[in-house]
């Protein structure tokens, strides 16, 4: 089997039924909105363009590179789709990818599909869009904004989506919050680097060879405010919620003791854990996680500050 499952697809049986249904409803609303938006933007080109690009993202998830000692990094693609085609089209593409993975390849459950759609087709594009646009605006259309923006957007889309998975597992009583958040967040802070690097590589290739294609994802006046606000809120909410939920000192101590065991045990499902990063030293794991969360907030603060200053200068 060439097709390898990505680590963030929740199977059936892990989520409580009310939560699954609530997430189904949210996902359906967002998907319905984006279907309408994409139909307006692309018109009759919608079916071929979306269909082929969904197949491309699906196939692109097969691309991988070796990191070290049998572990490898690979692509989820939500950020890449968002950067290249805009958030609404990305929602639609990821919906098709995640939906077919669940229906045909049992990668993620059917009842849990609502949650998986929420994590990968809603959170992914919604979080990466404001970040990417932010850097683009900050750099006033210069090259570095595109590159830095695509790396950070891709990293954040993975990291925040993993926090969403942890939150869902914790709310369902399947995995206690004080373990789920640091474990999922910590592992995906690393996986996100792989995603970021591949996304960066893809965007820089397209920048060099077909710069006109990067224009496709340019801002659309209508409805993008919703994504700006929604995406930023989602990111901040999850980034703030997770340390709060796991701030229970007993829980943190427990994870510290267990970190080595957990990371080693999850190797088959999480493929980008270089062994040397987690030598079983408890505080280092914690440091990674806390650094990840602090980093997100710091980057957000700095960008906000710079953007504010720039705006004042131009005004």
């Amino acid at each position: 089997m060439l097709y390898s499952p990505a680590p963030m697809h929740i199977p059936d049986g892990f989520l409580s039924v009310p939560l699954s249904i609530a997430l189904w409803i949210i996902s359906i609303v967002v998907i319905a909105l984006s279907t309408r938006r994409v139909s307006q933007d692309l018109g009759e080109r919608e079916v071929p363009v979306m269909g082929v690009l969904a197949a491309a993202i699906f196939a692109g998830q097969m691309l991988n590179f070796t990191v070290t000692g049998g572990t490898s990094g690979h692509l989820m693609g939500a950020a890449l789709a968002t950067i290249l085609l805009g958030p609404w089209a990305a929602v639609l593409i990821m919906t098709c990818v995640v939906g077919v993975q669940a229906l045909i390849f049992q990668d993620g459950g059917l009842l849990a599909l609502g949650a998986n759609l929420f994590n990968m087709a809603v959170v992914g594009p919604f979080v990466s869009y404001p970040i990417y646009r932010f850097f683009q605006r900050m750099s006033t259309g210069q090259k570095w904004g595109v590159f830095v923006g695509s790396f950070i957007a891709a990293w954040t889309s993975i990291f925040i989506a993993s926090l969403a998975v942890a939150l869902q597992l914790a709310l369902s009583g399947t995995s206690p919050a004080n373990i789920a958040f640091p474990a999922m967040g910590g592992i995906h802070a690393l996986i996100g680097i792989g995603e970021g690097l591949i996304t960066l590589g893809a965007v820089s290739l397209i920048y060099a060879s077909r710069r006109d294609l990067l224009k496709l994802g340019e801002p659309q006046p209508k409805g993008s405010t919703l994504i700006w606000i929604g995406g930023t809120l989602l990111a901040i909410l999850l980034a703030v919620l997770s340390p709060l939920a796991s701030s229970n000192p007993d829980g943190l101590e427990w994870v510290a003791e267990q970190a080595g065991f957990l990371e080693r045990a999850s190797e088959p499902s999480f493929t980008i854990i270089p062994d040397y990063i987690f030598p079983g030293i408890p505080n280092e794991t914690l440091a990674t996680i806390i650094a990840g969360i602090l980093g997100t907030l710091l980057v957000l603060g700095v960008t906000l500050g710079i953007a504010y200053l720039r705006r004042q200068k131009t005004a």
């Binding site: 082929v52 197949a55 692109g60 991988n64 692509l75 890449l80 960066l200 590589g201 290739l205 060879s209």
Partner: peptide, 17 residues
Amino acid sequence: RAKVTGGMAGNLFIRSI
């Protein structure tokens, strides 16, 4: 290696569009 893989992803995207 990540850059090479990224180039492949970008190439795949261009070819697909």
